[in-house]
């Protein structure tokens, strides 16, 4: 356990070191830049905002984590997020309920949207054995264009300069207290549910087993194709939920590029977290710290915030490579120790 934490921390530090070298080459002061980065996102008044911004990252991250750990290579989070956001927006445009009913209703719609989209890929695999790895990627592009069409034509806000929908009903806005958005509560609930399913339920046990050795679990009596469908639908719903919350907590309408880079960041988070649920939460928050802080960094030190995008990818590559490298390194040490014991 300690070793795992060490590997992650060392990997992140190495990536930061590399980032510092890049900054030095370009004549920036890395220490000040990093200080501003963390100051902007972790200062007492800011941390609630950073936490709120981590919601889509953690949710898409969990979607990818659960999928990767259970076998399906669901890379469709970007599309599922958009479809979830679209469905929640449509619900919010045409239906108005008291907030206590409205918010859960829209969240359900968002999850339904995401699950529908991942369901398409799941059924293509189930019926025709088409690899979800490519189909989800293609469905991402299709969802991208489809939602863009939806906000351009059927749900277009008249008189707007940009393609966007009108505001959703006020009752569907996630309540906000200062910088703290209540979408964080939904995220924590989703995290608890997913953690429980994966770690404490029979289904989760079967998923993890199938993820590690599909043949073994099939021979052990696990219904592989049913689990596959359930995992795809669940992970799609998680990504859809992220999309719904982005709309309900943020601009309260579907605007162009609303999905941003959340979903791909989520995939990276799942990879760097080695598909662990708790680590996904940690890294999701950490990535949010980087992204929120990057705004402050750009404001004060003139280092473009795009640098953070590079830094994230470098963190993923170094931490994952380091994990494998350290594991063989420690295994070698162990073997050498045993050898010595035997000789002595």
């Amino acid at each position: 356990m300690k070793r795992k934490i060490l590997v992650n921390v060392v990997g992140v530090l190495l990536a930061f070191l590399l980032g510092a070298v890049v900054m030095l080459v370009q004549g920036y002061n890395p220490l000040e830049t990093y200080y501003r980065l963390f100051e902007y996102s972790l200062a007492p008044g800011k941390i609630a905002y950073t936490l709120s911004k981590s919601v889509p990252l953690v949710l898409t991250g969990m979607s990818a984590s659960v999928a990767f750990a259970s076998g399906p290579i669901n890379l469709g989070q970007p599309g599922q997020l958009l479809m979830g956001a679209l469905l929640a927006t449509i619900g919010g445009l045409y239906i108005d309920l008291p907030p206590l009913l409205m918010i859960p209703f829209l969240l359900m719609l968002a999850m339904l949207g995401g699950a529908l989209w991942s369901g398409v890929a799941a059924l293509l695999k189930y019926w025709f054995n088409m690899s979800e790895f490519i189909t989800t990627l293609m469905l991402n592009m299709i969802a991208d264009f489809f939602t863009y069409w939806a906000i351009n034509y059927p749900f277009f806000e008249a008189n707007a300069n940009h393609p966007q929908t009108p505001f959703i009903a006020r009752s569907g806005w996630m309540p906000e207290w200062g910088n703290f958005n209540s979408s964080v509560i939904v995220m924590v609930l989703a995290f608890a549910v997913i953690w429980f399913i994966v770690n404490r339920s029979t289904a989760g046990y079967e998923w993890r087993l199938s993820g590690q050795n599909s043949l073994f679990s099939r021979l052990g009596g696990v219904n592989i194709s049913k689990n596959y469908l359930v995992v795809m639908l669940l992970t799609g719903a998680l990504a859809g939920l992220a999309g719904g919350l982005v709309v309900m907590a943020g601009p309260h309408r579907f605007i162009k590029d609303i999905g941003g880079n959340y979903a791909w960041d989520g995939v990276m988070i799942a990879m760097v977290a080695n598909s662990g649920i708790i680590l996904t939460l940690v890294f999701g928050f950490f990535f949010s710290v980087l992204q929120t802080g990057s705004l402050g960094m750009e404001l004060i030190t003139a280092v473009p915030k795009e640098l953070i995008q590079v830094l994230q990818a470098v963190i993923v590559l170094i931490v994952v490579a380091g994990r494998g490298y350290f594991e063989t390194f420690f295994a070698k040490l162990e073997a050498r120790r045993k050898m010595r014991e035997r000789i002595a």
Binding site: Q26, I73, L75, W264, V267, M268, M271, P304, E306, L307, Q309, V310, Q312, A313, V314, V316, L317, V320, A321, G324, Y325
Partner: peptide, 26 residues
Amino acid sequence: LKMDEFITGIGLNLFSVGATTYMLRQ
């Protein structure tokens, strides 16, 4: 480093997007 090819590929793709965007800006 014998890292998983899938993870390397995804990481590299995102690195490429980030790096080109950054350089474009810079």
